[in-house]
C-alpha cells in the first residue's frame, strides 16, 4: 500500500451559483507525479488551487468537503501560511518578482523568518541546483530576475518554491508559456524532483501527462471522470469519455 499524501473527500466548489467542482474524491500518492488533464474549463486548475487554498483569494468562492494533508484537514486544522509553506506552487506564467535572482529565491525563507546570511546563501544555492538552474544563475545572482528567458524564469520560480522546503509541489500548466526546449528541461526536472517531493501537475498536453506522470486524473465539466495509473488511463481507460478525450475526439 502506497502512502497517500493528500486525500480529498466529497469536495464541492462554487463560484457564486456556479458549481465548478462536483463531489471530487482523489487520493494523491506521496513522491509520485499526478497529472490532471481535461479540456479548458473542466475544473482542473480550480482543483489544484484548492490544495493550497489559493482559491481563498477569489471573491465569492464557497467550498465544502475535506482536503486532508497527512491526515489534517487543510481548511480546518492548518494555518494557511503554514499550509502554503508545505504545499508550494508554480504558476502558469513565470512570475519572478522584479528583484534580484538571489532575493527571489530567498524571499520565501525570509518570509518564514530565516535571517542569517550564511543559511540563506546555502538555501539559495541548494534550491537553484535542485531546479537545474544553478549553472546559469550563479554568476547573475545579484542581477534582476526579469532579465532571464521565460524557461529560465520558470525554473527560477521552481527554485523559489523549493526554497521553503515544501512537501508537495503544485504546478499549474508550468510549461504552457514555454518553447519545446524549455518545456523539455522542466519535464526532466520533474522526474528528479519526484524523488523528494509529491508533485501535482495540471497540463493541457496529453503527451506531457503521458511522458512524466505516474497517475492521471481526467476532469470534465467539474466532474472527476476517471483516475488511475497513467499507463492504464492512456492505454485502456474505463470510461468512454476518457478514451474520446485521449484519442483527440474532443477538447
Amino acid at each position: 500500500m502506497n502512502n497517500m499524501k493528500i486525500t480529498v473527500k466529497d469536495l464541492n466548489l462554487y463560484y457564486g451559483d456556479f458549481q465548478a467542482l462536483k463531489n471530487i474524491n482523489i487520493d494523491i500518492e506521496e513522491r509520485k507525479i499526478t497529472a490532471l488533464i481535461g479540456p479548458s474549463g473542466c475544473g482542473k486548475s480550480t482543483f489544484i488551487k484548492t490544495l493550497n487554498r489559493m482559491n481563498d483569494l477569489i471573491e465569492g468562492v464557497k467550498i465544502d468537503g475535506n482536503v486532508m494533508l497527512d491526515g489534517e484537514d487543510i481548511y480546518k486544522d492548518v494555518d494557511v501560511i503554514k499550509l502554503r509553506k508545505r504545499v508550494g506552487m508554480v504558476f502558469q506564467k513565470p512570475n519572478p518578482f522584479p528583484m534580484s535572482v538571489y532575493d527571489n529565491v530567498a524571499y520565501g525563507p525570509r518570509s518564514h523568518g530565516v535571517k542569517k546570511k550564511s543559511i540563506l546563501d546555502e538555501i539559495v544555492e541548494k534550491s537553484l541546483r535542485s531546479a537545474a538552474i544553478w549553472d546559469e544563475a550563479k554568476d547573475r545572482l545579484k542581477k534582476n530576475a526579469l532579465g532571464f528567458s521565460g524557461g529560465q524564469q520558470q525554473r527560477l520560480c521552481i527554485a523559489r518554491a523549493l526554497a521553503v522546503e515544501p512537501e508537495v509541489l503544485l504546478m499549474d500548466e508550468p510549461t504552457s508559456a514555454l518553447d519545446p526546449i524549455a518545456t523539455g528541461r522542466i519535464e526532466e526536472l520533474t522526474e528528479d524532483l519526484k524523488k523528494e517531493y509529491t508533485i501535482v501537475i495540471v497540463t493541457h498536453s496529453m503527451q506531457q501527462a503521458g511522458r512524466i506522470s505516474d497517475k492521471t486524473a481526467f476532469f470534465l465539466l467539474g466532474d472527476l471522470i476517471e483516475m488511475g495509473d497513467t499507463k492504464k488511463i492512456f492505454s485502456n481507460p474505463d470510461d468512454k469519455r476518457t478514451e474520446d478525450y485521449i484519442t483527440g475526439r474532443f477538447g
Binding site: 489559493m54 504558476f91 519572478p96 518578482f97 518570509s111
Partner: peptide, 20 residues
C-alpha cells in the same frame, strides 16, 4: 501574478504588500 507568487510561498499579506 506577483501577489499570487508571494502568497503562494506562504508570505503574509502584509509582507506581500511591503516587499512586492
Amino acid at each position: 501574478i506577483y501577489r499570487e507568487g508571494s502568497l503562494g510561498l506562504g508570505a503574509s499579506k502584509l509582507r506581500t504588500i511591503r516587499k512586492v
